[in-house]
Amino acid sequence: MSQKQSNQIEVGDGAAIPNPEDKGLVSAWYIALFGTLALIILLPWLKPDPYLNILRFVPDGILVTFEVTVLSIALAIVIGLLTGLGRLSPNRFINLIASLYVEVVRGIPLLVQLFYIYFALGRFVQVPDIIAAVIAMAFCYGAYMGEVFRAGIKSIDYGQTEASLSLGFNRRQTMAYVILPQAWRTILPPVGNEFIALLKDTSLVSILAVADILRRGREYAAESFNYFETYTMIALIYLLITLVLSKLISVMEHRLSHYERR
């Protein structure tokens, strides 16, 4: 019924989500967080030019980064759910389409997909850069998310489906009322991982004309020639965001596992 957390091996490129049992990772998290905070506060204080200037110039991009991340993940979750269900569908055709999508997307680098969707889309419709970026990110991450959903749904014991069917629920109702609410618990940690990975990968959209954190940093650096200082601050800002997010996700994960515990 409930898998032990320790049995799961997750190798994602999201930030490590600290598990309370993993003492090493938990203390590393505190050291990293306070170190990052200290640097973000101390550097502009000790050396306002250029650090304070960078800190004034870049934050516009944080909002854009978040916008792209949140919109992309929301869309990716929808695509992922449909893909995951498609991959589990007994309908051969739907199954094939979903599988094909996953195979194709997984085989093409994200940056290439970004360029492709951005310029291919641009040929037919004029959409704002940020929308093109979101569509491209979601298209890519939807495939990974699809595999996460599929694994989460498959992890639920088939007895649950049988119990639901025997009460008179159809397949769709069974999925909605019985399977997905349970699968969500298994799905949440990897989705959190994907969220953090996606947030970092949104730095790729700085190549398109989207003014995210990295783009703003590049603009500043190009004008001031303070490359080292600028990218130091950029790295620290990303690190701070991902550290806070990973903690938030682990808290959420524990909230959601309440019915496993007495």
Partner: peptide, 20 residues
């Protein structure tokens, strides 16, 4: 089939209560 199943209660060896 779902209409017919509503008239047939089923009890399983492994209970299969909804844990959530």
């Amino acid at each position: 089939i779902n209409q017919i199943r509503m008239e047939l209660g089923m009890v399983f060896q492994s209970f299969n209560l909804f844990p959530h």
